[in-house]
Design a protein around this nucleic acid. Structure first.
Length: 482
RNA sequence: GGCGCGGUAGCCAAGUGGUAAGGCCGAGCUCUGCAAAAGCUCUAUACGUCGGUUCGAUUCCGACCCGCGCCUCCA
């Protein structure tokens, strides 16, 4: 039975089966991060959802070719590098490295290609030139190059925004006036392919047929997508905010240059709110991964929380949701551990099951797989895991689980990118010597059945911030988090 | 104003034209000197409001209310 994966497509607003046009690789491109600071969890929601897609594509045998760019030249990176007195390359490198560390901690698979904008200036210049040749772009007086939206009738088809609406956007929602003539644009709706050199760019400029300057942001994705994946890719992904104008512009650039459809499928994820509010710096609720690990949450708990809602549904991220994720993960680990013990399988062996060849029959976890295969419904998949485990426990009183069920379960976890028995992250805190002393005294008192003394010492330890947790043959001290 | 999304039990969150997955929290029990941990069991008159279609709607249609997003080189 061939596995099928269906996904909602923004262009047609329908759920469509995914397939590889060239029959060999599923070519998909994701708009990556801008390397100007640490990525926040909103960024990671997008990348994690894409990671789940990538993994699920592998399972259905579509052999993904995953490209995700790094934006290392734009207003923010230039501004940041100049204010830190670094060159652009050095400035962006530190944030790219940080991004990679975070991505790895979150168990994201590395894309097969991760091109930087500044390594592909030639391709971008070439694309802009092609658009000029096709009379879809023009050179302004200052040497900037603009895409002429009015010359491209299909503009706006993705976001279903007619050209009339775009060109009448004289004021923004913030009430600010759009100043068209500041940039020598012919029309307010035209966007920059190439920006002529400005003093505030510092030494960040490149030569082009139109003079020195730098590429416009939208151009890099079009150019690099074509360069690495060819024309007519299978899928293009990004946050819903990129739908307009970024993806609209990418379509105009690619299809205007080649006359071929840019991407067959558009995959957008909804945004993240934090504690019921839009995430923003001014509200102080813009979490990075480091912010959350400092609060004691593990990256795996963050991953679980960020993928647990359906990707097209706006998600309200809260600290409570992280706590909930922690409990759920613990429960999964305990439940599976019981089956592994019963089956004589080690945790490592279980983890190793999460590899090709992936199952085509999902047994007890059919529902979980259906969730994934049907528009990446992670909520449904998680529900399927829990009910599957409950049935497994009922069906196997001796806790001996059939290997194919464990294999299916491991496959589901692979798709979700959830790695169990890994959620650690809590560094074993050092217990102060005097408290260790108290703990030893309490243990002794307990052996002597001096309950009053034992209880008193327990209280003192708690006051010192440590909980005593007795085992059969000893005790543990754990930090009193609450 | 244009385009779009959502309102399901204390919280989070799936889903369906025929009386609603799952997780968290909570409760009870087991275990335990106590506490915790763990396991088991369980709870709840939950589908924004008002109409319409229908034998029957939470699920379809319409209106309305409320919340949110984009329209600003934000994932």
């Amino acid at each position: 039975m061939a596995l099928e994966l269906k996904l909602y497509d923004t262009m047609t607003r329908t759920v469509q089966p995914l397939w590889a046009e060239d029959g060999e690789h599923f070519r998909f491109y994701c708009c990556g991060p801008t390397a100007h600071g640490p990525a926040h969890i909103g960024n990671f929601r997008a990348f994690l959802v894409q990671d789940v897609l990538r993994r699920t594509l592998e399972i259905v045998g579509l052999k993904p070719m995953h490209v995700r760019n790094l934006t290392d030249v734009d207003d923010k990176t230039i501004r940041g590098s100049r204010s830190e007195g670094k060159n652009l390359r050095g400035f962006t490198r530190q944030w790219i490295e940080q991004f990679h560390r975070d991505a790895e901690a979150l168990n994201m698979l590395a894309p097969h290609r991760e091109p930087r904008a500044t390594d592909h200036i030639d391709q971008q210049i070439g694309l802009a030139g092609q658009l000029i040749e096709n009379d879809l772009a023009y050179v302004a007086r200052d040497g900037s190059v603009y895409f002429k939206v009015s010359a491209y009738p299909e503009y706006g088809k993705l976001s279903r925004l007619g050209e009339r609406e775009i060109s009448t956007q004289e004021t923004t929602s913030a009430g600010r006036r759009n100043e068209a003539d500041e940039y020598d644009r012919e029309s307010i709706s035209d966007f920059a392919l190439w920006k002529s050199r400005k003093p505030e760019d510092g030494d960040n400029f490149w030569d082009s047929p139109w003079g020195q300057g730098r590429p416009g942001w939208h151009l890099e994705c079009s150019a690099m997508s074509r360069h690495y994946l060819g024309d007519g890719i299978d899928l293009h992904a990004g946050g819903i905010d990129l739908c307009f104008p970024h993806h609209e512009n990418e379509i105009a650039q690619c299809e205007g240059a080649t006359g071929k459809r840019f991407a067959r499928h558009w995959f957008h994820n909804a945004h993240l709110q934090v504690e019921g509010q839009k995430m923003s710096k001014s509200l102080g609720n813009l979490y990075t991964l480091a912010d959350l690990t400092e609060k004691g949450y593990s990256p795996m708990e963050v991953r679980y929380a960020l993928i647990s809602g359906h990707y097209r549904q706006p998600m309200n991220f809260t600290l409570a949701s992280l706590q909930s994720s922690r409990s759920a993960l613990k429960r999964l680990e305990k439940a599976i551990e019981a089956h592994l013990d019963g089956s004589g399988m080690s945790k490592e062996e279980f983890k190793a099951l999460a590899a090709p060849p992936f199952p085509t029959e999902w047994g007890l976890f059919e529902e979980a797989w259906r969730g994934l295969a049907n528009d990446l419904n992670v909520s449904r998949a998680l529900g399927g895991i829990f009910t599957g485990l409950a049935r497994m426990a009922k069906a196997n009183p001796g806790a001996v689980a059939p290997e194919n069920d464990l294999k299916a379960l491991a496959g589901i976890f692979y798709a979700l990118g959830i790695e169990l028995y890994h959620s650690g992250g809590e560094t074993p805190a050092i217990v102060p010597e005097e408290l260790q002393c108290l703990a030893r005294e309490r243990w002794q008192a307990k052996q002597d059945k001096d309950w009053a003394k034992a209880d008193l010492l327990r209280k003192r330890l708690l006051a010192g911030g440590w909980q005593v947790r007795d085992r059969k043959d000893g005790y543990d001290l754990i930090p009193n988090s609450t």
